[in-house]
Amino acid sequence: MKCCYPNCNQDASSTWALVPLCVHHHKSIEEETGKYYHRNSHERIPYDQRENYLNISSQIPWSKKEW
């Protein structure tokens, strides 16, 4: 199975919210999610700055419909 991140043709090695992703895109979304849920509110990123996550959110059945 191939990575479902836009314009990526690498093999998927895992999933994020049921979306198959390659190692690189999984790691980038994982890091970005850590920043989004950061304990310190001054270091959190807003939802609209979750660029990597938003690139796959339309493929996630339960995601916010902001795309």
Rank of each mutant, 00 (worst) to 15 (best):
S58N: 11
Y47G: 11
H24Y: 11
E31S: 08
Q59N: 10
P20E: 12
H24K: 12
W16A: 01
P61E: 13
S57R: 14
D48P: 09
I60V: 13
E43V: 02
N9E: 14
H24G: 04
P6W: 00
R44Q: 15
L54V: 06
N52L: 03
E51L: 03
M1V: 05
P61Y: 09
K35N: 06
K27T: 06
Y36N: 08
N40T: 04
H26I: 04
N40F: 04
P61T: 09
N7D: 15
I45M: 02
N7F: 08
Y37C: 15
R50I: 03
K65N: 13
P61Q: 10
T15S: 14
W67S: 05
A17V: 06
K27E: 10
R50F: 01
Q59G: 06
E30T: 15
Y37Q: 13
E51V: 05
K35D: 08
P61H: 10
H26S: 09
I60M: 05
P20S: 14
S41D: 14
K27N: 07
H26Q: 12
R50W: 04
D48W: 14
K64L: 14
E32I: 00
S57I: 07
E66R: 08
N7A: 10
L18C: 07
E32M: 00
R50T: 08
G34L: 05
Q10C: 12
I56N: 04
K65F: 10
D11V: 13
L21Q: 12
P20A: 10
Q49G: 01
Y53I: 01
C4Y: 11
I56V: 03
Y5N: 04
I60H: 04
C3R: 07
I45Y: 01
T15G: 09
I29L: 00
C22Q: 15
T15Q: 14
E43T: 08
L21T: 09
Q59F: 09
A17P: 02
